[in-house]
């Protein structure tokens, strides 16, 4: 049995322009100690998926319309706020995209890092601070004894993200959700942060849900990849299989639009058009209007394509136009 089993998760936003189906029936398992990637372009629902798991979706306008997320016999989507408070930050924690805004500017790093220890473990101030210094050392912050007393604005972006990682991992959670943790960082720092997440994961045996739109990052760190489009998962396979044998037209288009895979001088392949407006109900295959690689004429127009296991452990949305 997987550590966390997300089934048919639906998170909708009730806005003035109608109901935005940001996440519309997403299912995936998270196995102990494994890294699963969620990849997709902006607005495909990858962040909302994870926010829903931790109850971070602002309600209203957001609403979880259905589905379940079973973690250790508890349904994260339906359990009481107080029960959720005992899980998040302790057994499931999260790191955010922008380290510049994810730390409270008014509180010392020590205060913020020790907070999970103090509320979840009931640790006293002194011991928690010792742990915090250790945690900062483990994420590679030099002179942690001094740095721990500083304020976030005295840290650089990379250091802040390290501090965030230290904070998220200080309670040794079973699952770490990383929401584009490297997007806001310099390329050189990105690499270090990825290595850091990987090594900490190995030491602690934490499962990681890694959200990104960077395919290179996915290939480097993930065991299994979910490709999301328009609030749905269109393809899932283990990392090697997905990159060597992509089936869905969207995945293939994404892979083709990586600059490094193309010859110099050739025009860069891009996916034309925009992602569909999720406030309007989508009939048939959501990728049909942008499908250049497959045969858009054969795409389903009436019925929603089914998510099917075509190869062993290789799941894909079964739309004939997208698979050719």
């Amino acid at each position: 049995m997987p550590l966390l089993e997300v089934k048919n998760l639906k998170t909708h936003f009730h806005t003035r322009d109608g109901i935005v189906r940001a996440v519309d029936g997403v299912s995936f398992p998270v196995e102990k100690g494994k890294t699963i990637g969620i990849v997709g372009e902006s607005g495909s629902g990858k962040s909302v998926t994870c926010y829903s798991l931790l109850g971070l979706v602002p309600m209203p306008p957001g609403k979880i319309e259905g589905g379940s997320a079973i973690f250790d016999d508890t349904d994260l989507l339906k359990c009481h706020e107080n029960d959720l408070c005992k899980i998040r930050g302790k057994r499931i924690s999260m790191i955010f995209q922008d380290p510049m805004t994810s730390l409270n500017p008014y509180l010392r790093i020590s205060t913020q890092i020790t907070e999970p220890l103090r509320i979840h473990m009931g640790m006293d101030k002194k011991r928690a601070k010792k742990e915090a210094i250790e945690a900062l050392r483990e994420v590679g912050i030099p002179e942690p004894e001094k740095r721990v007393n500083m304020y976030p604005h005295e840290f650089s972006g990379g250091m802040r993200q390290r501090a965030m990682i230290a904070m998220a991992l200080i309670t040794k959670p079973e699952i770490l959700i990383a929401d584009e943790p490297t997007t806001a960082l310099d390329v050189t720092v990105q690499k270090q942060i990825l290595e850091l997440i990987k090594s900490r994961q190995k030491e602690l045996g934490t499962a990681v849900i890694f959200i990104t739109h960077d395919l290179a990052v996915i290939s480097e760190i993930c065991d299994e990849v979910n490709v999301m489009y328009a609030g749905k998962i269109v393809e899932r396979a283990n990392s090697r299989e997905l990159f060597s044998n992509p089936l869905h037209a969207y995945t293939r288009s994404l892979l083709q639009s990586i600059p490094a895979t193309q010859l110099k001088g050739e025009k860069l392949f891009t996916i034309s058009g925009l992602p569909p407006n999720l406030a309007k109900p989508i009939q048939g295959c959501a990728f049909r209007p942008r499908n250049q690689i497959g045969n858009s004429d054969e795409c389903l127009t009436q019925s929603t394509p089914e998510f099917k296991e075509l190869d062993s452990n290789h799941w894909v949305q079964n739309c004939p136009g997208c698979l050719t």
Partner: peptide, 23 residues
Amino acid sequence: EFVEAATSLGLSKMRILFRHIVP
């Protein structure tokens, strides 16, 4: 975002309001 981050750490609403927001 830091309020979201604080929520994800499992802090209670009161603690978030008076320790993270009000200051």
